[in-house]
């Protein structure tokens, strides 16, 4: 065998390995989604969405957990958005390249890797006990906002970095101040990327269970929250609760709950992809 043939063979082998790696994740996901769909799809109807929790699997619904999740999502967005984007703009546009700012940067990246249960403990002490929010939707949202803040900051900075230098230069050349440049040029130009980062961070937040259990989210709540100070449950807790029950009917419920939760994350990811494509075209 000459060298050319040998190299071609290596090439083929690597290609096959690459295909295997790509398919592995997708196939596993497909198997998982398939089995969940088989188990749960027949359970999903309007009653399942609007019913309260119940001891009887066939009467139980996800209404309060779903509303809790929606509340958490909205409030977390409201809290994490301005803080995260503000911090990213400061680090990217205003901060000098000093030791302090590189220390900040390292710490923010590290925070992104802290296990979520630690944020739960932090939230329990600060928001629930010291600030005395109680085990409320607000305390849960603040905790999750902290959890996703590093992701929001990092992705916002990436989006700002991706804005072509020519846009900045043009803006300054016309005599715009830094703030005018940021607010009128950089933010609109990078909003696709920023939005993508935020939505991906929120898809993570909507699936979190551990930190919310720690701060005292409940398993049985017969009402949807009507204010940020109300107690709440969320979908992942409801699913976890069902899956550990002895009666088989609850397993079906859990599968159905998982379908709804997956649907929410898929839709959110879909929105992220849509906005990214739209903005990318605009600024090329």
């Amino acid at each position: 065998m000459n060298r050319i043939k040998k190299n071609r063979l290596k090439d083929q082998i690597f290609k096959a390995w690459g295909i295997f790696c790509t398919l592995l994740g997708i196939v596993l996901l497909a198997i998982f989604i398939g089995s969940i769909l088989v188990d749960g799809i027949q359970r999903i109807d309007w009653d399942f969405i609007t019913n309260l929790p119940s001891r009887k699997a066939e009467r139980a619904g996800i209404y309060t957990a779903l509303m809790g999740s929606v509340w958490i999502l909205v409030l977390t967005t409201i809290i994490a958005l301005p803080v995260g984007i503000g911090a990213a703009i400061y680090l990217e546009e205003y901060a000098n390249k000093s030791k302090l700012s590189s220390l900040l940067e390292i710490n923010i990246s590290n925070l992104a890797g802290v296990p979520s249960i630690i944020y739960g403990l932090l939230g329990l002490e600060i928001f629930v006990r010291v600030i005395q929010m109680g085990s409320s939707v607000l305390a849960g949202s603040f905790t999750l906002a902290l959890l996703i803040l590093p992701i929001v900051i990092v992705s916002t900075r990436e989006a700002l970095k991706a804005v072509p230098k020519s846009i900045r230069d043009a803006s300054y050349a016309l005599g715009a101040s830094k703030w005018q440049t940021v607010s009128r040029q950089l933010l609109p130009a990078s909003s696709g990327g920023i939005l993508t980062g935020i939505i991906l961070a929120l898809s993570r937040a909507v699936g979190e269970t551990a930190p919310l259990i720690v701060i005292g989210a409940l398993a049985y709540v017969p009402f949807a929250p009507s204010s940020p100070m109300d107690e709440f449950s969320v979908l992942p807790i409801q699913i976890f609760n069902w899956i550990s029950r002895p009666q088989h009917g609850f397993e079906v419920n859990a599968a159905a709950g998982i379908i709804i939760l997956l649907l929410i994350t898929f839709v959110m990811n879909g929105i992220a992809v849509y906005f990214r494509n739209k903005w990318q075209k605009k600024f090329k």
């Binding site: 309260l52 001891r55 709540v221 017969p222």
Partner: peptide
Amino acid sequence: EEYRSEDPDVDVTIGV
């Protein structure tokens, strides 16, 4: 769950 039909104005919440 049953108490709710008895007295719907009482909100019973349960944690685990």
